[in-house]
């Protein structure tokens, strides 16, 4: 089960990286987000899975696809100056980073101990538990997040409006 969702996620992400058409890349991204939601279900966290689908695939990706269609930028524009050296360097850097990090994760003794001590599947996360923690311990953070969303909304309207 895990390997299925992991493959859906990674193949969706790879599709986004390699796809020429921007709309198709966006739809590959939706597949990747669904894979991540499946991983969250396997992590005994259905609340996070539901949020992932509602917020990422439901809101953010629809917004992105809407903007792609509005700006009519389906294909990547031709490069003004091809930069082969920089592109290969960045690719090598990313590959080295990924390889090194995976090697570190596999070699870490602390992670191995944590994987053994926490192997038993915990009780599934409930909305009640999340709500209690959120409003008992993090009320100020919640209010600040609300303020931030309001500021972002006003900022987005101000940026897109032609003459304010």
């Amino acid at each position: 089960m895990f390997i299925t969702f992991a493959l859906i996620t990674l193949l969706g992400a790879l599709g986004m990286l390699l796809q020429k058409n921007v709309i198709v890349a966006g739809l590959c991204m939706v597949a990747a987000f669904f894979g991540v939601a499946g991983l969250f279900v396997l992590l005994a966290n259905p609340v996070a899975a539901a949020l992932q689908i509602i917020v990422y695939t439901g809101a953010i990706m629809v917004l992105v696809l809407f903007v792609i269609m509005m700006l009519n930028s389906h294909e990547e524009e031709k490069a003004q100056t091809p930069r082969p050296v920089q592109r290969w360097l960045s690719l090598a850097l990313v590959a080295a980073l990924a390889f090194g990090a995976v090697k570190l994760v596999m070699a870490s003794a602390g992670l191995k101990a944590l994987a053994v001590s926490g192997a038993a599947v915990p009780r599934a996360m409930t909305l009640q538990k999340v709500g209690t923690t959120l409003f008992a311990d993090h009320l100020l953070g919640f209010e600040v997040a609300g303020l931030l969303l309001l500021a972002a909304m006003i900022g987005a309207v101000a940026l897109t409006k032609r003459d304010l």
């Binding site: 917020v55 809101a59 953010i60 917004l63 992105v64 903007v67 931030l148 969303l149 500021a151 972002a152 909304m153 900022g155 987005a156 309207v157 940026l159 897109t160």
Partner: peptide, 9 residues
Amino acid sequence: ACEAAVGLA
């Protein structure tokens, strides 16, 4: 979500 709204704008 904030980042998406402002970035796309």
